[in-house]
Amino acid sequence: MGTVLSGVFSLMATHMHLIFERKHLGNGNCTENFQTPGINVLGYFFICWSFRIVLFMSIITMVASCFLLYSVYAQIYEGLLSYTIWIITYEATNLAVQTLTDEFSVALVRAMRWFGWVARASLHCFWLYFVITQAQIIYQSKKQGNILTYHRRISLGSGDHPRRKSKIINFVQHYSE
């Protein structure tokens, strides 16, 4: 259940993040930003292409979230592990974009963007626990050949006790004589 909620949360949070960032990263005026001293080529790339990077990463995250939901349904542990790796990459990239474009935001917008990133990353970390646990369960069941394990109770008493016959068997034998 937690794994399914992880996929649904990821879809919702990514969509909300995309809506918020569209308004604040969509200006794309790179000529002014490059004139700022201390920006290297990588920083310039992230600043100029920030919304396109966020859009591309968000679309892939939405596809990965749908694949997560399918992987839970189809019991594919590789899908759950690839989702885990993707979410870590997604949040790291968003952190880089956030850090590099931070100085070009108004203080209130900057605070809201940081709050949004911290909340989303924290919840992704929380839900990843369930995804990884589900992946382990699926992996263990595939390793055992999809046979459910049966744990017999071991009696604490000493000695072997003969098995009792079922009352139904006794009842059928009684009337068949």
Rank of each mutant, 00 (worst) to 15 (best):
G28L: 15
T149V: 14
L123P: 00
V63K: 08
F9L: 04
V97D: 03
Q173Y: 09
E103Q: 10
M1P: 14
L68H: 11
E32D: 15
E177G: 08
R163T: 12
R113Y: 01
W127T: 12
T149L: 15
P37I: 11
E91Y: 03
L81G: 03
Q75S: 13
A111I: 04
F130E: 12
L148A: 11
E32P: 00
G145T: 03
A107Y: 03
Q140F: 11
K165V: 09
H161N: 04
Y90T: 02
Q98G: 09
S176D: 07
L11G: 06
K143N: 09
V72Q: 11
M1L: 13
S50H: 11
V72C: 15
L123W: 03
S176I: 14
S105Q: 10
T101L: 06
W127A: 05
I53A: 04
P37Y: 15
I154A: 10
T99N: 08
T3V: 13
Q173D: 14
Y83F: 15
N94K: 02
C125H: 05
T93Y: 02
G2F: 03
C48K: 06
R153A: 13
K167M: 12
I47M: 11
T93D: 00
G159S: 02
I53E: 02
T84E: 03
M62Q: 15
F171S: 12
K167H: 12
N170E: 15
V118I: 15
G26Y: 01
I53F: 03
F115I: 15
K143F: 08
T31N: 13
S82Y: 11
R164E: 14
F46C: 10
R152I: 04
F171D: 08
T36F: 08
T149F: 10
F34L: 15
G43N: 08
V54G: 00
R113S: 08
I88C: 08
A96T: 13
N94Q: 04
K167Y: 12
Y90N: 07
N40A: 11
L25I: 04
Y90F: 14
L108D: 07
W117V: 01
F130D: 12
R113T: 02
L156K: 12
F67D: 14
I39D: 08
Q35M: 15
G79L: 04
I138H: 01
E21K: 02
G7L: 05
G28N: 11
G26D: 01
T133G: 04
S50W: 06
P37T: 13
R164L: 14
F56N: 03
T99Q: 05
H15F: 14
V131D: 05
C48M: 06
R110Y: 02
L100Y: 10
L156I: 07
L95Y: 10
R113L: 03
V8F: 09
A107W: 07
T101W: 06
T101R: 07
T149A: 12
